[in-house]
Write a protein that binds this DNA or RNA. Sequence first.
RNA 1: GGACUCAUGGCUCAGUUGGUUAGAGCGUCGCCCUCACAUGGCGAAGGUCGAAGGUUCAAAUCCUUCUGAGUCCACCA
Length: 877
Amino acid sequence: MELSSKYNPQETQDKWLQFWKDENIFHAKPDADKKPFTIVIPPPNVTGILHMGHALNNTLQDILVRYKRMNGFEVLWMPGTDHAGIATQNVVEKQLAKEGRTRQDLGREEFLKRLWSWKKEYGDTIIHQLERLGSSCDWPRVRFTMDDAYSEAVKHAFVSLHQKGLIYQGKRIINWCPRCQTALSDEEAEHKEKNGKLYYIKYPLKDNPNAWVVVATTRPETMLGDTAVAVNPQDERYRLLIGKTLILPLVDREIKIIADDFVASDFGTGAVKVTPAHDPNDFMMGERHQLTVINVMHPDGRINKEGGAYEGLDRFEARKRILVDLEERGLLEKEEDHKNAVGHCYRCDTMVEPYLSKQWFVKMKPLANRALEAVKSQEIKIHPTRWIKVYTNWMEDIHDWCISRQIWWGHRIPVWYDENGNAYVAKSQEEAYLQAKVTQGANVSLTQDEDVLDTWFSSWLWPFATLGWPKDNLDLKYFYPTNTLMTASEILFFWVARMVMAGFEFMGQKPFSDVLIHGTVRDAKGRKMSKSLGNAIDPLEIIHEYGADALRFSLIINSGQDIFISKEKFEIGRNFANKIWNASRLVFMNCSKEAMEGDYENLEFQNLDLHSRWIIARFYETLIRVNASIEAFHYSEAEVLVQDFFWGDYCDWYLELIKAKFTDIHIQKTALFILKNSLKLLHPFMPFVTEEIYSKLQTRDQCLSLSAWPVRSEKLFCSQAAFQMQTVIDIITAIRNIRAQWNVKPGESVDVCIVCADTLLTDLVAQNKGDIKRLARLKDFVLDTKAPVLKNSAFALVGEIKIVVPLDGIIDINAEKNRMMSETAQKKKAMEGLNSRLHNADFIARAPEEIIQKEKERLETLTKEVKELEALLANLT
RNA sequence: GGACUCAUGGCUCAGUUGGUUAGAGCGUCGCCCUCACAUGGCGAAGGUCGAAGGUUCAAAUCCUUCUGAGUCCACCA
């Protein structure tokens, strides 16, 4: 079995994607002998195209999933997509627009047919892309939020909440998108700070047209719907005017001056126009004062017939005209610059209009209580913990959720009306009919509510609706509650918070126990990656050029809070994959058939040399730390650890050390043992290249994805080896240092004298003489107990070991002297610090004993070293 | 207006509960195509941890204030 001389990521990816699929490797089913581990995927929009955010999110999940699977859990990672009501409808409407048609031209039924065929053709795009990333989902289980079973769950949820009185219909001011022509929830209206104007408008008194009240407004066009002007009852300026009548300019309507505590006297003029149909505060004031409510706008944002002369104008056009007309009449006192935050549709960025309409709402307070408590009590843990506060703030100040949407793509609201307008909430028309029949007689005819539900009203059921809820079944019993949810912060309120509420409400249990909020992927300049900015890096392009492993590895190793990425960053992963490949090649080329086919999983400690004991110790140290990092969701830390070990210890030291003795069967076995176990450690991060190399091993499991994670063997772990080996490494490094310093060409061998008084150390050096000679490129090697008198030599100290390298004719003795003097000075400075600390009575009195002890030891070593250095310096003169 | 995060060598980030001479990677510089890998090897330079103050025997690490960058929330028109 051999590895090709050049690693081909594409071929490897294709091969293993096929294998995993053919063998259905990632299928999860209830297994009483194993513990379940379930992860909740944030289902991407069905219109989605893989971007770096998906790549990051899925890699994070896949790392955990593969780790847990290898640790013996029955892992369920169910993939799926979200029907994304407005977004998807927009896509197909755009298509229609190209044909010069609208959805209304087609009619509801035809339009929906069109949507479904679009879904059939393009809906799996993102799923296939996630697969290419290496995501080890249970692919055949793929779910869609509009699957039949899922739809049943949605209806069930609606009816059940309605029965509890948690869903109601109400006429209220909601966020309205004039372009999408639908209501939005508060979360779907994104507040954006805008530099606007505050207009001061004179409203003349009826009694005295030469006197007026000035009101300040940012939206003058809404004055067409004004039905009062309000002032604070405490405001002296207006006290006498309360109850008087004003003439609304341009409209000539008579409106009253009312007093309301809501009005802040210090803003604007202290008098505010009241437009109950177009502002939530005004609406509430209107209710308090029984004001007339006049809606002046069509759903598309044009002024309606209530607007008189302005009828038919778009809201912004109307604003311009109204300002001109007011100006002409001398009623526009002034305008001021004014910053304010205005809601924008999160799907099309159109400025949202506060709009009065009849919608369905969910009462959130009763649902929020349990969800709040769960996070506060750590029953659900949010990582990093700072998000807890964000979550609790939102939950504590929660508003009712507007769930009806005036679009066609989505779950139609399960409500039917009879001819008299009575509503029947039911899971089906048949059930509604049974209800209606009781009061309306058998001939009652029903029509279903035209609206559909907010997409998130289905998404919040995901953790259990995908498992078959509301039907009781084994999957649901075994896999719920789930374990971990990993997601970007953007959908904390939209989705995460609501899933928690839904979990408790419908299942009586939390939906998951850990939530990991990860950062956003940004470009090198820190901007969000987006199509419109043109700064997006396409993950598929990276997969094609560098490989999926490289994409995954680089993405994770760069992940701090947010992830700043540029194309070159992916070389890190590519290079590492290449290194793994080549190191494996070296091992395979040097291992005998006997070693390859033998049982190198059960090494005997007594057969191992120092180097092998050392690399095993280093491996287990790494393993323990990697485990801890993964459990703590610190994946980038885990990657650094594995990379440091594999590249820095295994490749750079161990493989170099054993090259001279690769014929030894025990060495071969150890090399294979470490390689195999390293592949396991690397696998969650780089699944493809590791599977491929693993598959060339003779003794192995069906595939690496299903193999068992390593466990530290106490029999093989030897901390002494680690210490001894470090000394050998330090000696070699010190000599290499000297060579580089004096520019000794690699081809030129030098002699060296190693001076050491300690017998144990002397033995160690003697045993490793060959390796030191080879790796430091030495001609000859003298081991002595005391320093010889050698002129023209370079010196180095490694603990108690002195290294003398004669460099006659090469060395500049004065430069070497200077170097050693500065080294001495450095050490002396450190000694000073230690001395002053150790002579500080407070330090001695208050610092823990072990710290003092450490400092003392440190001082002792430094003193010794300085002494040695000074002796060597004296030798030089 | 409220909340939060970040500020460490040229760049991107580590730095666990405060405890030796602050770590990586990239980049830079020097030497090397050594028969696994130049997507490589060996070595070097470079920071006192945004500013000021405080707590402490001891602070990059805790507290306060300030400055700068960013994020989220918000019905004062």
